[in-house]
Design a protein around this nucleic acid. Structure first.
Length: 456
DNA sequence: CGATTTTGACCCGCGC
DNA sequence: GCGCGGGTCAAAATCG
């Protein structure tokens, strides 16, 4: 994986122009490189047809330059295609190698993003939650298979029930959570979804109450989140997600969902190996200092939890520390691990940091910086030495990265005609030029559920 | 008046 | 078995 990513970075550096072209078209066509390339081809062909019409001598020069341009673009496309094919081949090759190693070392496990509810659920739960838990396990992230019918609360399709049976049959049903720490003055941080509060509790050791929310985008959605302020720093909001959306998500929510899915995937992948993530490395990226280290939690949570820490370091207001941590129950199956990122530019980050901006930064970092990719891939490769599902984390992450890059580029080009969609419209937005000055692709949705949650 | 929040009660798992 | 703590339920209160 690392080699692959490094290779990708080299090729990315070598053809930045090509990237920008493909990204724009790719965004329109649904992220398929093949589709985008054929689209370019169609456009080029169309241009050629237009240019072939009778023209004056002055037009002939234009025609000639246009033809040259077309040739250049064709060459670019060809190169992109070759790069894409070679990368694809290498990726498949590495996947096969990885699975071969796994087969020798470990028994095959359920390859799924399912995070699993406890098979020993109570009878009451069984009765009450036929619509929410029947999926056979709470899972994190987007599930495109579910249509957005109004009868979402009905029983899931046969395939999903089969999946549930498979998951239940596996005794190693796991339950994982993705926790996001962020500095936020609001009651909850914005994540693009609609939430309804269903409970509040004072937890031990923290005077701040913990609030319980469930997703209300679709009836029967099993996704829940817990929101609680940190006992160490009241300005830090800890949001813990659990479950998988059974409905299409708003555009603004996909970043969070895909990231939590990826994080959960990595978490579960790591949970199947007895080898801890013994990472200790650091890289510099666009003013961000990314580092990884072993996580040392004195009190591990009862469920495997991965933490994305976006808070600034209390030691220095100039530093923001963004880190991935994975907390596991005190069992050998859940080795502790984390990735730790920090940056000396916290002052430019708004308190809305923790919404799409983080994911854009993360994914941008992955797509643009080889050293950061190396760090991520090192983490991934450490995990996937024993479990191929770690590959899905890498794929998810890269997919999210690519997807976000496309959105970024689309927003960037839209910005030439309109600047109203920038996050700068928010009173909490970051000041202008900074490495984190990203566009928001759906500003309207940014006024969604959180405002509702803050209204009282 | 419907949607949402609040809050006490209840359930359940876990440790002793 | 008992107590504790986390999580959920559901009726009442509140909001728009």
């Amino acid at each position: 994986m690392e080699v692959l990513m490094m290779e990708m970075s080299r090729e990315n550096d070598a053809s930045k122009q090509e990237e920008s072209i493909t990204q724009i078209v790719c965004h329109e066509d649904g992220c398929s490189p093949k589709a985008s390339q054929t689209d370019i081809g169609r456009k080029l062909h169309k241009n050629a047809d237009m240019n072939s019409s009778p023209s004056s001598s002055s037009h002939e020069e234009e025609l000639e330059s246009a033809m040259e341009e077309n040739e250049r673009l064709k060459m670019m496309i060809k190169q992109i295609q070759e790069n894409y094919k070679s990368l694809q081949l290498r990726f498949i090759e590495m996947l096969q190698q990885g699975s071969a190693i796994e087969g020798a070392e470990e028994e095959p496990e359920l390859v799924s993003l399912s995070l699993g509810t406890s098979p020993t659920g109570s009878k009451k739960d069984d009765q009450k939650r036929t619509t929410t838990d029947i999926n056979g396990g709470l899972t994190l992230g987007i599930n495109p298979r579910f249509p957005s019918h109004e009868n979402n609360s009905e029983l899931p399709k046969e395939e999903d029930r089969e999946e549930a049976v498979v998951a239940a049959d596996k005794s190693q049903v796991k339950r994982a959570r993705v926790s996001v720490r962020t500095r936020c003055e609001a009651l909850t941080m914005y994540d693009g979804c609609q939430w309804r509060k269903y409970g509040q509790k004072i937890s031990k050791g923290n005077p701040c109450p913990r609030s319980y929310y469930r997703c209300t985008v679709a009836p029967g959605c099993p996704v829940r989140k817990q929101v609680q302020r940190s006992v160490d720093d009241m300005s830090i909001l800890i949001t813990t997600y659990e479950g998988k959306h059974n409905h299409p998500l708003p555009v603004s929510a996909t970043a969070m969902a895909s990231t939590t899915a990826a994080a959960a995937s990595m978490l579960l992948s790591g949970s199947s190996t007895s080898q801890p993530l013994g990472l200790s490395s650091a890289v510099e990226l666009n003013g961000l200092s990314f580092s990884s280290s072993l996580h040392d939690n004195s009190r591990p949570p009862s469920f495997p939890t991965i933490t994305i820490d976006l808070t600034g370091s209390p030691a220095s207001s100039n530093y923001i520390s963004s880190r991935f941590t994975a907390d596991f129950p005190a069992t050998p199956r859940f080795p502790p691990a984390n990735l730790n990122f920090s940056s000396p530019v916290a002052e430019v980050l708004p308190s809305v940091w923790g919404n799409d901006q983080f994911y854009q930064t993360l994914t941008k970092a992955i797509t643009s910086d080889p050293s950061f990719r190396s760090l991520i891939s090192a983490a991934i490769s450490t995990v996937d030495q024993a479990d191929q599902r770690a590959e899905s984390f890498g794929q998810n992450l890269m997919q999210a990265a690519i997807s976000q890059s496309l959105k970024d580029s689309a927003s960037y080009f839209k910005g030439f005609t309109s600047s109203s969609s920038r996050i700068g419209s928010s009173p909490q937005s970051s000041p202008s030029p900074s490495p984190f000055s990203f566009s928001v692709f759906n500003s309207a949705s940014a006024l969604g559920s959180d405002n509702k949650e803050q209204k009282k």
